[in-house]
Design a protein around this nucleic acid. Structure first.
Lengths: 144, 144
DNA sequence: CTCCTAAGGTCTCAATCTGAGACTATTGGT
DNA sequence: ACCAATAGTCTCAGATTGAGACCTTAGGAG
């Protein structure tokens, strides 16, 4: 009847955690998830982290590798990641000076959950594309 | 010398995947990660998914439970999730009509990677807060 | 000399997106 | 006749983002 609780292997641990946070009010300052999502849950951050996962890279290289990002947003994203200790910044005294960014150990550790998300994305991309097409054909409204 | 490759247990599988996608250009239409991030990588979507992970919920309840979200954004977020097949929408003919949202099996399956991220957030929240304070005290610039 | 280029930014302005809150529809209750 | 409740939509002001001009410094070309 309710496909909800049966569809996934470990719902208890998951829903418990979410229920827990919810009970504490998702308070913006104290809730870890709120905090972390405000940082990495945006358009560019995960992409930048993934680009740095391949190898340490300089600003210009990141511009080339992260698609469609503007200088402005790349700068901002890198500053915030540096502030949070996920990446480190190294200036080399060439002329003009070049700057390399690399993941810190903390930054490396976030690759694991990011990888989980990536795996999911790859595994379910087809389903999503299909659902999207269906919805756009007007058949999608689940309960019209 | 390079703490990069040693800091995490499974870097090879991860970097390989990212390198792979990068080689294919992160093309906005075809890259799964790009697609998925454009959808769930925003300010509200993960929070809404988490709220629905606890139990199926009606619009008004979601408003109360997801902190600071506006009607406008909640509506938009729910529509996009429905379009992508992650949630379903059920109208009940009460007066006024009420609408319940619940995770689809596909939506349930995303809880797993989301949970991984949540675990990471909880485990590393203190480190991040510390790094942030350090940076804001002007000590943060990694290589001034 | 003088000009050009490189890298990594910053700054400005226009376009886009978001938030707050007014407004809508329907019908049972007072 | 009027109010309340739910799930939205609509509008407008304010916040965020993107595109691209501009800045700095020193080596190499002419």
């Amino acid at each position: 009847m309710n496909d909800f609780s049966a569809a996934i292997a470990l719902p208890a641990a998951i829903t418990t955690q979410f229920k827990d946070w919810e009970a504490r009010g998702f308070d913006a300052d104290r809730c870890p998830m709120r905090n972390i999502l405000d940082r990495i849950g945006d358009k560019w951050t995960m992409l930048v982290l993934m680009a740095l996962a391949v190898e340490p890279r300089r600003f210009g290289m990141l511009m080339r590798v992260v698609p469609d990002i503007s200088k402005r947003m790349l700068t901002q994203t890198l500053r915030l990641l540096e502030r949070d200790g996920l990446i480190t910044r190294h200036v080399f005294a060439t002329t003009p000076p070049s700057v390399e960014y690399r993941l810190s150990p903390l930054g490396c550790s976030v690759l694991e959950p990011l990888h989980a998300l990536a795996q999911w994305a790859e595994a379910n991309f087809a389903s999503i594309t299909f659902a999207r097409a269906r919805y756009d054909d007007g058949l999608g409204r689940t309960d019209p």
